[in-house]
Design a protein around this nucleic acid. Structure first.
Length: 107
DNA sequence: TTAGTGACAGGCA
DNA sequence: CTGCCTGCCACTA
């Protein structure tokens, strides 16, 4: 079994509704570790199997898509656009508009 | 064991 | 706006 933090991160990401996004730092905070942003990114990177995980709805605090390759960035941007999210050519989204605000999860 | 690294964040010039 | 620095924490050489 993975540690509690990891399971919570997975649970939260699974509940992000289509058309909305969350940031690494926010997810970490909701999962109980305000300083775990980098862990969230690492979890997604390793669990790239993405078993039904909407990983593409996770972006950084600036509303930017930051991945290793430009190819991956375009891929994620395409997935987001399919959900109606406007992604600028330089891979940025409007957080004020698409950030998932009604995060309410009980453990 | 120490040093470097990264799908991050926040402050500052 | 961009770039640099610091704090963070797990992983790797």
């Amino acid at each position: 079994m993975p540690d509690p933090f990891t399971s919570r991160v997975i649970a939260i990401i699974k509940r992000i509704p289509p058309g909305n996004v969350l940031t690494y730092g926010l997810i970490a905070k909701f999962a109980g570790n305000p300083r775990g942003a980098r862990q969230v990114s690492r979890i997604l990177h390793s669990m790239s199997s993405t078993e039904g995980l909407p990983w593409h709805r996770v972006i950084n605090a600036e509303g930017r898509i930051v991945l290793a390759s430009d190819l991956e960035k375009d891929e994620q941007a395409a997935l987001l656009r399919e959900e109606g999210i406007v992604v600028s050519p330089d891979h940025r989204v409007d957080l004020d508009r698409y950030l998932w605000k009604s995060v309410n999860i009980d453990y």
